[in-house]
Design a protein around this nucleic acid. Structure first.
Lengths: 253, 253
DNA sequence: TTATTTATCTTGTATATACAACTTTTTGTC
DNA sequence: GACAAAAAGTTGTATATACAAGATAAATAA
């Protein structure tokens, strides 16, 4: 016999009659509030669809929609054949969209230009291999681009790409299309992660960016996946006086 | 007669047979790719559920699920009684969750401690008023906290709170509960925005943080809303060598 | 006991149907 | 033409049903 959560479902019954919106939304709120206030602990089992149907007299599709949407919102996690559980608390996570520096500059009404400082085929170094999740010596492409906003250098983009997943990378003209835009076209992004730091530029980097070596820089390390495969790893370096990272969010459970 | 999009639906037919995942997912991808590559322009009408049913021989619920999920992902926008349209624009937005520095430190298995450097009632200065969206002279609370991780200062937190929305703010013991945790309890966060920069600390800030004034700092300016009202504005300053911002995201169209 | 098969439970998807709510268009009436 | 009513189109929600797919528990056979 599997672990029972019927009593948890029964307890939801009272919460459901209070609200007056859509049924699936009431159910979502009832469950989310229990997760929020901690009465349903992380990784704890939540009622199955069948148990919700029995306890609340809703159809399975309604229960399914509530649980499914809560899962995409990161409140719950599900596993086919096993059950539904309260999601582990997201420790560091900050959801973030991909930025394309060219689009960003264009949206400000300014002119974007890129210089290609390096574009080559290579074999992954040990560090690159671990960053890309491949073996050392795996074929990769390296690119080093300098982005300008109205003739002022704003970002130094260093990138390593899994050559097997983007074989035509070398043939692209990155003065007209950013690597970010190209990659998102040939390998639709499904996942990614960012690591944002404040660092100092090296002498060489500072020279490219036409800045003083004592000026702080915002460095974004970004790895992007497509269909479960790690496609590219990038390091974006920008002078703190010329570049900010803006984010907006809504609906935290 | 309403504007027809039947031909757009018909064109989707070929894209659908290629994929082999779930049907609603194939439909989502087929539509999303047309939005992505611009062949379906912003604000343009997309086929109605009925047209998709007719053209693709799927059930209305399947079409509904595809369009609905694309809407929550910000690719499309819908209006009841009117129709479905390509969403206006990719938000500049980067979704981000609230961080609580104490939780973050605890999750690393380290010890957190906070010193209260300042905690007072005041009248909003012109700058504070514009940041909080209130008039100059509006009652506010100010707090200045220094957070330690294992006895090492890691973040200087300067905060301004709308006193009307958190009247008991002064009575809290912020050495045991962070302002972030307190505020999220009394005023559940519904919206927020971040501005991340790389800056240099002032002499006073560097002294508090026990760091060199030449070392770059990561500065996060954060404003948080609750039920449409701007509750607090915070500036979090951390030495670049001791603090990183990590983010993970999934499923950008 | 051990291994294999079977049954059962769970989530995942797809369909058909029904009605509600909202908007736009058409029709009817004055 | 102006106004009102009706019809049609569209999305929103809820239900019932069915089968597929994965995982676990129970029964069975060696």
């Amino acid at each position: 016999m599997r672990q029972q959560s019927q009593h948890l479902a029964d307890e939801l019954k009272t919460s459901l009659t209070e609200g007056n919106g859509p049924l699936y939304e009431q159910l979502k709120q009832a469950i989310a509030s229990r997760v929020r206030d901690g009465s349903w602990a992380a990784l704890q089992r939540v009622p199955s669809e069948a148990e919700l149907v029995k306890a609340l007299a809703v159809s399975r599709m309604t229960a399914n929609r509530a649980l499914r949407e809560l899962t995409t919102e990161g409140i719950l996690q599900r596993q086919q054949g096993v059950g539904t559980f309260v999601a582990e608390k997201k420790l560091p996570s900050a959801l973030s969209e991909i930025h394309d520096i060219a689009e960003e500059i264009a949206s400000r009404g300014n002119q974007h230009r890129a210089e290609v400082l390096c574009l080559e085929r290579a074999q992954a170094s040990q560090q690159e291999a671990s960053g890309l999740g491949v073996r050392t010596g795996h074929p990769v492409f390296r690119s080093l681009l300098l982005h300008f906003e109205n003739q002022l250098p704003i970002q130094l983009e260093s990138r390593v790409i899994n050559a097997e997943l983007a074989p035509e990378y070398l043939e692209q003209d990155f003065t007209s299309v950013t690597p970010s835009a190209y990659l998102s076209r040939i390998a639709p992004l499904t996942e990614g992660e960012h690591l944002v730091e404040a660092v100092l530029a090296t002498a060489e980097q500072a020279n490219w960016l036409q800045m003083n070596v004592t000026e702080p820089c915002l460095q974004i390390q970004r790895r992007t996946w497509s269909r479960g495969e790690l496609v590219a790893s990038a390091r974006l370096l920008s002078p703190g006086s010329r570049f900010q990272l803006f984010g907006h969010f809504g609906r935290s459970i």
